[in-house]
């Protein structure tokens, strides 16, 4: 795979391309978040790039890197159907300033992907037309795919019934109820 796309990006954005790598055909460019939308627009509109197909946008959380480069690594993968090449753009964000320009005006497919990234990681996308939670409910607080979200913390919308416990199954003395267990017992008529 040629590094055409990376060379084009470097020629266009210069120092705003922080680093590039190319491993077995996977071209990756880490960008300054300031040029995020401009780079997406450039990849779509430049005739030699012609990246007309949005593949994916999501976030990876590296909590240990928040001091140095920023914990959230937003990535965007775009592909050119005609030229059969693809590139992955990355932007690193610190938790204190976890916002990024939305590319949903450039790639329509990024709309729901950005909503999901916001829902799961709390990265805010400036200029998104409708930045709401997409999978979780509005009452949910916190961002469940952040590494510091407690792994089994649930936020139920309903009040659990009495006598039930988290993860304690019903499988106690009633496990394997035999047929014809007992004669009719008026005590058992209702719940």
């Amino acid at each position: 795979m040629s590094k055409l796309l990376l060379d084009r990006l470097k020629a266009q954005f210069g120092d705003s391309v922080l680093e590039t790598s190319s491993f077995r055909g996977d071209d990756v460019a880490v960008l300054d978040p300031k040029v995020w939308r401009a780079a997406a627009t450039f990849l779509r509109d430049d005739p030699r790039c012609a990246c007309d197909y949005f593949v994916d946008l999501s976030v990876v959380d590296f909590p240990d890197l928040d001091e140095s480069t920023g914990r959230f690594e937003v990535y965007l993968i775009v592909h050119s159907v005609a030229k059969k090449h693809r590139v992955r753009l990355k932007a690193r964000l610190k938790e204190a300033s976890a916002d990024l320009d939305s590319v949903s005006s450039v790639y329509g497919g990024a709309d729901w992907a950005e909503r999901e990234a916001f829902d799961m990681f709390g990265v805010r996308f400036n200029g998104h037309p409708d930045l709401r939670r997409i999978l979780m409910y509005e009452e949910f607080s916190g961002y469940p795919l952040r590494k510091d979200y407690p792994a089994n913390k649930a936020q139920p919308l309903i009040e659990y019934r009495e006598g039930t416990h988290d993860k304690l199954g019903p499988f106690l003395e009633d496990e394997g109820m035999p047929f014809d267990r007992s004669p009719v017992d008026p005590k058992n008529f209702s719940h």
Partner: peptide
């Protein structure tokens, strides 16, 4: 098992063996 329970008017939870 459910039909058996209905016939016995038994509303306690049952786990299939």
């Amino acid at each position: 098992l459910l039909m058996d329970k209905i016939g016995r008017c038994d509303r306690t939870p049952a786990v299939l063996k």
